[in-house]
Design a protein around this nucleic acid. Structure first.
Length: 203
DNA sequence: CTCTCGATGCGCT
DNA sequence: GCGCATCGAGAGA
């Protein structure tokens, strides 16, 4: 399967987010391939987006968002979890797509071990869960998804418009626009989409 | 099923 | 010090 190229990521973030649905996230670890189909994403769009880590300017943590597209932005949050993004738009514009859920396709036995014996949707139905399953940690921050040998995205099965659902992002803080913008995209009715919490979530 | 709450590291104010 | 782009255990219904 063909890897997504640099120009795929260089486009407008919402377009990239929408087109990432259905594609295959691949991780190579200890010679073993782990892969899953992307079924839920969120767009974080530049310094004007109050929920985007880059909204208050460039720092050591968010630096890769300001760089070239097609690079992994991995961050550590809540003192124990990692989340992974694909950097979008031309260098200088800080934006990225958070990968929130995948459907496991390859290496389920390894993912199960990485998830302490959990199975089914619990393997990868959340942004931190999928990072545990695929062994994605901060050493992959800045990894090149286009030419790297540890993490990349392949073209798989595009999702038709009729199957794409949209809504507000999960767990974000910020201004009214950040809380209400429908920049979370997912595959409608897909079982691996993360559980939308009814509390602790602001809209 | 729903909801609450604690864990825990670190970048930023 | 504060507050997180979260998760999972535990309680209650």
């Amino acid at each position: 399967m063909a890897r997504l190229a640099r120009d795929f990521y260089a486009r407008e973030t919402l377009t990239v987010a929408r087109d990432l649905l259905g594609q295959r996230l691949v991780r190579l670890v200890r010679g073993q391939e782990l892969a899953g189909r992307i079924v839920e994403v969120e767009a974080y769009i530049g310094q004007g987006d109050a929920a985007c880590h880059a909204s208050r300017g460039r720092t050591a943590r968010n630096a890769v968002m300001f760089g070239p597209p097609g690079v992994a932005y991995v961050y550590f949050v809540y003192g124990m979890h990692h989340c992974v993004n694909a950097v979008t738009e031309p260098a200088g514009r800080a934006a990225a797509v958070l990968i929130r859920a995948i459907e496991p396709l390859v290496g389920l036995d390894v993912m199960r071990r990485n998830r302490m014996g959990r199975t089914g949707v619990e393997l990868t139905n959340g942004p931190a869960k999928l990072c545990y399953a695929l062994e994605i940690e901060r050493d992959l921050n800045g990894a090149d998804l286009v030419s790297g040998q540890a993490l990349w995205i392949e073209r798989d099965r595009p999702v038709p418009d009729a199957d794409v659902a949209r809504g507000p992002r999960v767990g974000v803080r910020g201004d009214e626009r950040a809380l209400t913008a429908p920049w979370r995209l997912w595959v409608r009715e897909h079982p691996y989409v993360s559980r939308a919490r009814t509390t602790g979530r602001r809209m």
